[in-house]
Design a binder for these strands. Sequence first.
DNA 1: CTCTAATCGAGACGGTACGTCGCGTCTTACG
DNA 2: CGTAAGACGCGACGTACCGTCTCGATTAGAG
Lengths: 198, 198, 198, 198
Amino acid sequence: MEAAVSRISREGPSDARQVRSRNALTGALLELLEEKPFDQLTIREISARAGTGYATFFRHYPTKEALLSDVASEEIADLLARTLPVLYDSNSFESTRALCGHVAEHRNLWAALLTGGAAGIVREEFIRQARQLPRDMVERKSWLPADLGVVYGTGGTIDLLAWWLSQDEAYSPEEIAAILNRLIIAPLISGERSPASA
Amino acid sequence: MEAAVSRISREGPSDARQVRSRNALTGALLELLEEKPFDQLTIREISARAGTGYATFFRHYPTKEALLSDVASEEIADLLARTLPVLYDSNSFESTRALCGHVAEHRNLWAALLTGGAAGIVREEFIRQARQLPRDMVERKSWLPADLGVVYGTGGTIDLLAWWLSQDEAYSPEEIAAILNRLIIAPLISGERSPASA
Amino acid sequence: MEAAVSRISREGPSDARQVRSRNALTGALLELLEEKPFDQLTIREISARAGTGYATFFRHYPTKEALLSDVASEEIADLLARTLPVLYDSNSFESTRALCGHVAEHRNLWAALLTGGAAGIVREEFIRQARQLPRDMVERKSWLPADLGVVYGTGGTIDLLAWWLSQDEAYSPEEIAAILNRLIIAPLISGERSPASA
Amino acid sequence: MEAAVSRISREGPSDARQVRSRNALTGALLELLEEKPFDQLTIREISARAGTGYATFFRHYPTKEALLSDVASEEIADLLARTLPVLYDSNSFESTRALCGHVAEHRNLWAALLTGGAAGIVREEFIRQARQLPRDMVERKSWLPADLGVVYGTGGTIDLLAWWLSQDEAYSPEEIAAILNRLIIAPLISGERSPASA
DNA sequence: CTCTAATCGAGACGGTACGTCGCGTCTTACG
DNA sequence: CGTAAGACGCGACGTACCGTCTCGATTAGAG
């Protein structure tokens, strides 16, 4: 349950009981995400694991997905803030390595979110958030629609991270950062030349 | 229902009624996939749309997912056969263009599969199949784990195609092929140089 | 469960499974009515006793009360047909005795319905049905509103029967018939003279 | 809310706040009883109508029924004291008329109690109290079990009053008293002759 | 007139039954 | 006598209300 530790009391309702219930629920979700796919979890199961009443779940979240969102969306926003800047940054490798380092530090959390069956939902939330970010700074590529750049860069990065996290720590953050840079970042920020045409 | 036309009688049981039922079910699924996400469909709904009895569904498929598989897996295998070769092909642009052309010709089918809510399942099936393909031919990159190459190449390609199919035909197959080539294929087959170090 | 025996297959749906389920439910209700008040029964409890699934209950009855109605309303109509005629019959004692005899023969059923906690509902259903019966035949009493005559005659009779059935068989049908006749029937059919004023 | 007026401060705790809360609750119950059946009321609804907090209800009454009891049981005892004596009184008509007059004077209260959905509970409470009254004075009828006499006399009277109160004041207390006398009282106190034999 | 303790409102909580829905199985009745 | 229709057992859903509980914030009424 180390993953849940970082979730305690980020901020929330004033009533201490509500805080306790919410933390119990988010913690239970993260625990269960490491055991089975998100869509095989039932609200009853999550409530039971959290030690809260079944109806209490609905006093905090309208659906299972809302709970997942609550757990994930801040993390996603946080990670996105680390992901996109690399596109505008001349020294992208440093940013990329910082991104991978951050994920490695919260390996349990991100493994649960990206490989635990909630992957599809988390991925969509990622792209949804990424699409809403301002992207004026990035220079328009004539050959690459801006929206596609965002979708592809985000999705590809997530895929790469998910693959990494499913690999039992065989690769260091630096290695992954290098791959990420070469495989995804570089093509996106490269100039107008067509590298494949050579 | 044009998408379903290509699905008629690919091969199947001898009994004409079974053939009719299967086609009715696959057709109904494709119709419904254009209306709502896959996971919001019910077997009752599919049966009703197909004009068959509810229990009849189970005589042909054990689950909803099996029906989706029946609809999609051959298409996936077919498309995969067009996707992976580009990695080994020195003239990758031609292969890529052929791939995009093929998808464009079956736009309705692929739009339903990749953007209709079944996307997650189809995507996973894609990668699952891709992973099982022999990959001896591809030269090992020192910086790129082979498995990651497959996962990333497949996933990225699907994402790109999905994005394209959700764009109301604003881009031609050639344009997409160019992007695909530059964004995904080229980085995968490029040499040992470190592009980020520049 | 002798009470339920008389309920088997009175008439019903053609499907044998439906017949079986309905009989299981009616039987279970009658069993449970002898154990605790109707309003303390839950549908889950009735279903469990019947050996049917919980949802199956709702495939047959919309509410607990509907099941009670199905069990009771025919019996009520039947008994009503024996109750009201005594009012128009010159030889009322014979009719009354027949009524009491009939109730005695189905003692378990009527004890459950009239003393088992469902009493209130059954009573209201009784009066509701009685009110809808034609009453042209009965001669209007100048001192007694017709509607009141029906309500009072029905309610009083039910009360008397309920009291009897709660008495551990200490009284014979004939004794009850005599009391019923003297206490309720006679005052209702007596002439214009005021018997208490003498 | 005229009905509730008579309920104010009958006696109770010293603290003015408690008195206010109790009266708010009893008043709210009586209001709501005129709108819907007792068993369809929720404690939350009663509390809200009373303008008190939800938990405050439980500080005064353990259950909904207890509140109803608090509202009704004294009234019942009072009315019973007027009902039973008529049986022992040679001049029963006077007593009966007094009874009906009293009910007419508190029409709103009794209409709510006897016709408002709480009828079943109030009725049972009535009979319960009646059964516990001493009945040595009444001469035993050879043909009529004493307990039945009480149950029947009480129940019948309540039924008659309930019917009256549901009739939009079409009958005067005197008319009802006459009917009550003739229909219920007279048969109970009549001699040994068999009135049906005529 | 103050102080203190009872009472208040508000509402979250663990429970439990509700009635609905979809699943996948299995039986029925019909063609 | 095989197949389409659909009833069944199961179990999760989301809602509603129960009765308990913990909070401050009034607010009597005793000193």
